[in-house]
Amino acid sequence: MKNTPEPTISFLGCGSMNEAILRGLLAGGLPPERVTATVRGAERAAELRSTHGITVLATSEDPEANRVAAAGADVVIMGVKPVGTIDLAREIGPVLKPTTTVLSVAAAISLAMLEAALPDGQPVIRSMPNTPSRLGRGVLSISAGTHADTALMSQAREILGSAGTVVDIPESQVDALSAVSGSGPAYVFYLAEAMAAAGVELGLDPDLAKVLATETVAGAGLMLAEPGADPIALRRAVTSPNGTTEQAIATFDRLDLPVIVAAGARSASNRAKAISEELDS
């Protein structure tokens, strides 16, 4: 954000995901005085003020906190739970500048739902982040609403880029993306659980098995994060002909592990669609 005027950004709701984005922005040089956040409780507000030096308003102390924070902001990042997102959009709509970008990181809330709740013509962008965003290693999608032009999408890309890799996708692909990157960290953690359990079955101490599985998965992730890394090439490099790893991979193939993973992702995508329909009904 060095080559353009610094935007004023308001985080409505500052849970782990919004705070991850906030941390990245501040680390990248955004002045704290350009940031306002809202939270429910006074204790959490005090914690954020102390940690980040930003203005934080608590709705428990001021019922108008969200409207106060949204008024005059260049970008409003909505990070409340999906069930409360549309009500929040309706609450802040009357005080938004016509040029304010509303960026939602709420799952299952479509662009059409947001645009219907906000003033006509309000620029809206939808993002689907994942939990590694807390470490600056997330994947965050952006999908443009009807009135989000190229410049606003570029601004959103820069803001969210502080938390990881930003990908542009049409909203029609959000559920598929969520099934891979949104739910994906849980798949990896599940694999680590299964590896640890396998170690115990083979006679290892449970604590040792957990360390081995955890550090192996984490280390493999770092290898995947290296420039130019390719998962197929990395797997083949570890899989010596007629070796132990080849036998394990052959067993996974025989049990159709890729089919199982695809079926799980399909179920996740279908559930995302169903949740959106429930919230829109």
Rank of each mutant, 00 (worst) to 15 (best):
A27H: 12
G28A: 15
G29V: 15
G29R: 03
L30K: 01
P31D: 10
P31G: 05
P32R: 08
R34W: 08
R34C: 14
R34M: 15
V35H: 08
V35A: 01
T38D: 00
V39R: 00
V39E: 01
G41C: 03
G41I: 10
A42W: 02
E43K: 13
A45C: 07
A45S: 04
L48C: 05
R49N: 09
S50N: 11
S50K: 11
S50L: 10
H52D: 11
G53D: 12
T55P: 09
T55G: 09
L57K: 06
A58E: 05
A58Y: 05
T59Q: 09
S60F: 11
E61L: 00
D62T: 11
D62M: 08
P63V: 15
E64F: 05
N66M: 06
V68S: 05
A69I: 10
A70H: 04
A70S: 11
A70V: 11
A71H: 10
V76Y: 04
V76D: 04
V76G: 03
V76S: 01
M78P: 08
V83A: 15
V83P: 14
V83R: 14
G84A: 14
G84N: 14
I86N: 00
I86Y: 03
D87N: 13
A89H: 02
I92R: 03
P94R: 05
P94L: 00
L96Q: 02
L96V: 13
K97R: 15
